[in-house]
Write a protein that binds this DNA or RNA. Structure first.
Length: 591
RNA sequence: GCGGGUGUAGCUCAAUGGUAGAGCGUCAGCCUUCCAAGCUGAAUGUUGACGGUUCGAGUCCGUUCACCCGCUCCA
């Protein structure tokens, strides 16, 4: 309990300082920076690339190869996970089945007639009526009474004149109208025109001056006047029956569908987007689901088991923000764990708790990391009602005192498999010969079912960002002013070898040690060698890069073959035999 | 996407509308005896980009791009 509250509180850390260090030391650069960058994309530099690889490797080894680090699952058996590496581009039908095409988006509408596509919030619908006819109709309704006789023609005109009424007042009036069934069938001789406009003023301007001559003539001839205008999908005013702004076909627009956050791309060299559209995957999960049958058929796995995958995914985020936290291109580490429906709750709990522990073991400890169960009203379209979705969240400097999601653990039920079974017309049921009632020979008859899925889905880039934020430790007492307290397992630089001075035969001793360490540990991260400038400066540089151990050859080494080990976090120094350095480092790296 | 703010060397920042600078860092050399020491020298900029006003723009105006802070969404 020596740690004070301030020590564990990331909110005292400056995100600007962290980003500055990331740039300065080559962790993360803005993508295509020399061209002015591109919004929502980031490049990893030498240290960042290695840090990211180390985190990915830790996940791969612990989760996939070791099966939850060798821990037994809730069924008392070892956890079985197999890896796949699936395409970023899948058959477009995959995304229809998964629900990403239909529900994963911002408002767009299509014209059923001319096939044009519009942004719903750019379409304004102008409703024209014949005033005397409309007023007469209106007077038969209860709404008329609500105005207590004030509803003269002039008053009506005033009420529905866009220039004089606030949105709130308009809402209020239309609530009165909407409450009256007699008004539900549109008033006689209503005439609708849709226009593309950025705002109400522009829409009215177009209505008054810029409509096609043909329409203007008709309105004039038949005595139509503008009654009301509204934005498409206006909850209060839109009746869902709207004309197309392009071809003017009446009632030809689909309901607004959110515009797709998926990256569209083109298959084939002709570049014809209309015929050959495909999508860059918005999540790696679907590549797993569509291969479920393949894996079952070809690899002798049996339920319960998981399929794991790391890889890039792409989303056209509305607002990329907060450094790499919400990037448009990002890497996921996903497991789809398949189990019997009856066991899904146990497996959900198991995964949720184990994944939380895993992040803790990598150094995201204390109050900065929380496990948060979702409320039922924020469950995703695939999540079972009340079955459980939890987020592992980290208190980033830019979210503090709130938290940002690092990994989500969701019970996806059999949603995805059933969707793909239906859309692909392929049977995806699993035949479980350990279940079912017993046959005469005492063997179970077996049970055929669609497995349920627990999905622990982690953001690799977010993990790296959390590790960076957690590691960043200001320390005014040391030369660098800051050091990166990476877990040795994740540190991109594993160790450094320094001759204390560049003479007296010290470099000649340091060089072979450097080469020995590099040969043995180079596959895990960088081993540095540096003989330039003062020893303090070299230590300081290693502090900023987060190198956990420095081995220094000094004049004593010449006498007794020992070297100094300098510890990054404590600044402590100890002496060990030079021929013990490699074993020492191996132990410290947990090998 | 909307509103507000910011863009000058790797970083932190200067520069009345009048020759683009400093500190730190980086690199090279000398020196060195455990925490950015010292000395000498060097490199580094289309002042985010494009256009305009002006005899003259880092500075004023317009557009655009990027980032930051709010609203919103996700892993």
């Amino acid at each position: 309990m020596t740690e004070t509250a301030a020590d564990s509180n990331t909110s005292v850390k400056s995100m600007d300082d962290i980003m500055s260090l990331c740039k300065r030391r080559g962790f993360i650069y803005q993508a295509s920076e020399i061209y002015g960058g591109v919004n929502g994309f980031w490049d990893y530099g030498p240290l960042g690339a290695q840090l990211k690889k180390n985190l990915r490797d830790a996940w791969w080894n612990d989760v996939v190869m070791m099966g939850c680090n060798g821990q037994d699952g809730p069924n008392g058996q070892p956890v079985e996970i197999v890896p796949v590496d699936t395409s970023i581009i899948q058959n477009p039908k995959v995304w229809e089945a998964s629900g990403h095409v239909g529900g994963f988006n911002d408002p767009m509408v299509d014209c059923k007639e001319c096939k044009s596509r519009f942004r719903a919030d750019h379409i304004w619908v102008l409703v024209f009526v014949k005033w005397p006819e409309w007023i007469a109709h209106f007077q038969k309704t209860q709404a008329w009474d609500a105005f207590e006789g004030e509803a003269s023609k002039a008053r009506m005109k005033q009420i529905f004149s866009s220039k004089n009424l606030s949105l709130e007042e308009r809402r209020e009036l239309n609530q009165i109208l909407a409450a009256n069934e007699a008004l539900k069938p549109p008033s006689p001789s209503e005439f609708k025109v849709s226009v593309i406009a950025n705002n109400r003023e522009e829409a009215v301007e177009i209505a008054e001056n810029s409509l096609p001559k043909k329409i203007q003539k008709r309105l004039e001839r038949d005595g139509f006047q503008l009654n009301i205008e509204y934005q498409l999908d206006d909850q209060m005013l839109d009746d869902g029956q709207n004309p197309c702004p392009a071809c003017a076909a009446q009632n030809s627009l689909t309901k607004p569908r959110a515009f797709n956050l998926m990256f569209k791309t083109v298959l084939g060299a002709t570049g014809n987007m209309d015929d050959n559209a495909a999508y860059l995957r918005p999540e790696t999960a679907q590549g797993i689901f569509v291969n479920f049958k393949n894996v079952v058929d070809t690899t002798r796995v049996s339920l319960p088991f998981g399929i794991a995958q790391t890889g890039k995914a792409f989303r056209n985020e509305v607002t990329p923000r907060n450094f790499t936290f919400r990037s448009r291109e990002f890497e996921q580490m996903e497991i789809e764990f398949f189990c019997h429906p009856d066991d899904s709750k146990d497996w959900y709990t198991f995964w949720r708790d184990w994944r939380m522990q895993w992040w803790k073991d990598l150094g995201l400890e204390g109050e900065n990391l929380i496990l948060r169960e979702h409320d039922s009203d924020e469950l995703a379209h695939y999540a079972k009602e009340g079955a459980g979705t939890a987020d592992i969240e980290y208190k980033f400097p830019f979210t503090a005192p709130g938290y940002g999601e690092l990994e989500g653990i969701a019970d996806r039920t059999n949603f995805d498999l059933s969707q793909h079974a239906e859309h692909s017309k392929t049977k995806l049921e699993y035949f479980d010969n350990t279940r079912g009632e017993l046959a005469k020979n005492g063997q179970p008859k077996g049970e055929r079912y669609l497995p349920h899925v627990i999905e622990p889905s982690a953001g690799l880039d977010r993990g790296v960002l959390a590790i960076l934020c957690e590691a960043f430790t200001p320390d005014p007492d040391r030369a660098s002013g800051v050091y990166m307290k990476f877990h040795p397992r994740l540190a991109p630089i594993k160790a450094a070898v320094f001759p204390l001075v560049k003479k007296d035969g010290m470099p000649e001793i340091a060089q072979p040690l450097y080469k020995e360490l590099r040969k043995r540990f180079g596959h895990l991260g960088t081993i540095e060698y540096d003989e330039k400038q003062s020893i303090g400066k070299r230590y300081a540089r290693m502090d900023e890069a987060g190198c956990p151990f420095c081995f220094t050859i000094d004049s004593d080494t010449l006498e007794d073959q020992t070297v100094t080990v300098r510890h990054r976090d404590t600044l402590d120094q100890e002496r060990i035999a030079i021929d013990q350095v490699a074993d020492y480092l191996a132990e410290k790296l947990g090998l």
